[in-house]
């Protein structure tokens, strides 16, 4: 267990800044998720923490000690790669034992530790197999076992679930979180999938263009986005952004509901809507429509819980509304969050 920290860390590739001055402090035992679109610098940042890339400037600190120029093998961290990066010529047993052997641990101790790690991930019966004889899910477990076996001070995980099918991914996500809670090891997890980020992280860092746009708990990032990028990146479907003369108005799809959904005593802001298409997702219905005057005619999405039995009439103007507290406002120039007071 350790803290992991970066100070004004940058990485430039051929003059282009992949990571542009990031300050990040990961707390002891925390599960921090770095999320952002592809090319946002999240993997580069993770590789700098691992020591696989040298920062152009700035520092990496593990447990308060500057390790910027310490080679990866001396950082006592473990990493799980997107491809799992198992040693294809070694059996599962030798794969898991590899980091221990590199430490020069005695054979007896290696054996018992490998056994323990294999039991933890339910792969005791695979120890003799080669990686090519394993399924995607089994490979992922072997990669995790290889990471935990050494009891490193921190785990770095680079999209470890992206090669699994959707069903397996959900269960693997659940297991991963349980392991992390049990081991209480500082974990930094990279993903482009905002659902994964919301579900896993104690805190989420939303990255774009090599910068951290927001760092906070899933609830903070979702409920109170710092800027329009975070507002539209986190959440599916994304937050509706309506440009008005004074600001961008942001409304989450689940907050834009037919007037009937609110009690008559409640004070709401009307947002009349002409619906074009309804997508029935089972638990929810997504209504795709255009705002009607006095609002600008902008395409928006409303998410109606199926329990709400309101009929949606296509092509007709229908009264929709939002609670005032669910309306976010962002500056037109910078896209940054505006104080509710100034609105």
């Amino acid at each position: 267990m350790a803290t992991v920290e970066t100070r004004r860390i940058t990485k430039r590739f051929d003059g282009h800044a992949a990571v542009a001055g990031i300050d990040l402090a990961v707390r002891e035992g925390e599960f921090l998720v770095l999320v952002g679109p592809s090319g946002c610098g999240k993997t580069t940042l993770l590789r700098m923490l691992a020591g696989l890339e040298t920062p152009t400037s700035g520092d990496v600190l593990i447990d308060g000690r500057i390790v910027t120029h310490v080679p990866p093998r001396a950082r006592d961290i473990a990493m799980v790669f997107q491809t799992y990066a198992l040693y294809p010529h070694l059996s599962v047993l030798k794969n898991i034992a590899f980091p221990l052997r590199a430490m020069g641990m005695p054979t007896k101790e290696v054996e018992s530790r490998v056994q323990r790690a294999a039991t933890m991930f339910g792969i005791e019966n695979l120890l003799k197999r080669k990686p090519r004889q394993l399924s995607g899910g089994e490979r992922q477990r072997v990669a995790l076992a290889r990471a935990v076996v050494r009891e490193p001070v921190a785990f770095l995980l680079d999209e470890p679930l992206s090669n699994l099918d959707a069903k397996l991914r959900t269960s693997a996500r659940d297991e991963l979180q349980q392991f992390q809670r049990r081991l209480a090891t500082t974990t930094i997890y990279v993903t482009h999938d905002q659902v994964e980020a919301m579900g896993l992280g104690d805190r989420i860092a939303v990255l774009n263009g090599g910068r951290v746009h927001q760092l906070g708990t899933p609830a903070e990032v979702y409920g109170d986005p710092e800027d329009t990028f975070v507002a539209t990146f986190i959440g599916s479907p994304p937050m509706n952004l309506i440009s008005t003369p004074t600001a961008y108005v942001g409304i989450r799809p689940e907050h834009l509901l037919p007037m009937q959904a609110f009690s008559s005593s409640e004070q709401v802001l009307p947002y009349p809507l002409v619906s074009q298409r309804v997508e029935n997702l089972g638990a929810d219905r997504l209504v795709y429509g255009t705002l009607a005057p006095p609002h600008p005619t902008i395409k928006v999405i409303s998410r109606l819980p199926s329990m709400l039995g309101v009929e949606v009439r296509l092509g007709e103007r229908q009264e929709f509304a939002v609670r005032p507290r669910d309306v976010k406002r962002f500056a037109l120039d910078s896209g940054r969050k505006l104080d509710p007071a100034s609105a």
Binding site: A50, L52, R73, A78, M79, F81, Y87, P99, A102, M103
Partner: peptide
């Protein structure tokens, strides 16, 4: 050789 495998070996403590 996949570069990830060599990276993994570095992180795994191999000189």
């Amino acid at each position: 050789i996949p570069p990830d495998v060599l990276d993994a070996a570095q992180v795994d403590g191999a000189g």
